[in-house]
Nucleic acid binder design. Structure first.
Lengths: 121, 121
DNA sequence: CCTTGACTTCAACCATTGTTGAAGTCCTAG
DNA sequence: CTAGGACTTCAACAATGGTTGAAGTCAAGG
């Protein structure tokens, strides 16, 4: 039985397991400002309880098509210990992005169907 | 006035201008099999009249989300001097791909809205 | 023939998104 | 106290999609 002391925060490995990504990815996201951490006296990272959640949201954002830098910008809006309303704004921003992507795909579909590409010579 | 002799094919620069991409991109697509060319006695590439069109289709395909290798696979179906029916099959494949992407985006949207991400602690 | 612009190859570089490995340090259970 | 696993940094590697530059060759007009 492994006792997890939440008091001083989650380690890299714990965030990795909770969010379903590799530990290397957790460090990468930390470097790029998607998640923040404090350091122990021995220089190890300790993350807040929302870290895993932020990683999951980051992953979905990436699948929607945002770059890591863009995800960082979106998550930068979140204060530490965010309220549901804070998350709501993030949610809305991501929904808007996804809908914009869908709109772009529809545009490409129209381009394809419109004979615009001049392929029948 | 620049006389363009279509008889022995288009040069890299002509394909680049006709398709709206850089000459380096035309060579890149050639290397990766999206467009084929013959060589002059002086080792220069000469493209067929459909080259610019293939490049345009490739660009749209990339925007849809296909990799260059995937675009190459789609375009490999096209015989030289393709019929409208041949282009039709390419068109259909790309439309299907785009719709699949839209479906994926919708899935991400649902994930976002379903509280699945466990952000409200 | 000669100049000039367009072409040739090849290697190096850019950004993006991580993974992998080496060498070393920390933390915790026993 | 000590062994072990988990952590640290840093650099190198990988794939993707090209761009840029160097050094040299081709093609066409005058």
């Amino acid at each position: 039985m492994v006792e997890v002391k939440v008091a001083d925060g989650l380690t890299v490995g714990q965030v990795a397991e909770a969010s379903g990504v590799a530990a290397s990815a957790v460090r990468f996201y930390g470097q790029h400002g998607l998640i923040s951490s404090v350091r122990t006296s021995g220089n190890q990272r300790r993350f807040g309880p929302d870290a895993a959640c932020r990683v999951k949201v980051a992953r979905v954002s990436q699948r929607i098509g945002l770059t890591v830098a863009e995800v960082a910008a979106v998550l930068a809006e979140l204060p530490s210990d965010p309220t549901p309303a804070d998350w709501g704004r993030v949610h809305d921003a991501l929904v808007a992005e996804a809908e914009a992507r869908i709109g772009d795909l529809r545009t490409q579909l129209q381009l394809l169907s419109s004979g615009e590409l001049l392929c029948q010579l």
